[in-house]
Every structure is written in C-alpha cells, then in structure tokens.
Amino acid sequence: MSYIKINQDKCKSCYLCIDVCPHKLIKKSNNTGSTGELTVEFSDNENKCIGCAQCAIVCPEIAIEEVTRE
C-alpha cells in the first residue's frame, strides 16, 4: 500500500498537491493552518495511491515529507 506523510504544520494551503494528484487523494482537512486557511490531508480508503510522488515534487513547503511506494 503506497502512502504519503503530510506535515500539516508546514502546509500553507496552496493546494498545488490537490491539483496534481492523479487520483484526487488529497483534500482539504478541517484544520486551519498558518495562512488561516484549511490545510490538506491524505485520504486513501481504497488504496489508490500509486506513490508517484508528484504531490511531494510540487509542494513548495516540503510539507509532504515522505512518499512510500509498494
């Protein structure tokens, strides 16, 4: 099962990761981040994540700290 680790402390809510995820597995969370907007979270109930790491590549904050592919 592939997965990503998001550090919400670092997230500035630019949502570039939401746009780039091929399976739309990243969505806004209920937590407000440093910019006053909702941070993002990873939700993959159907094990769709392919560990492509595109989200980590585009993240300007290195808030997506780990990507594991299986």
Partner: peptide, 11 residues
Amino acid sequence: MQVYSIPKSIK
C-alpha cells in the same frame, strides 16, 4: 519502498 523524503541538506 520510500520514493521521497526530505532532502538531507535541508535543515
């Protein structure tokens, strides 16, 4: 397999 992690040269 970890395919991405924080670069070591980042503090």
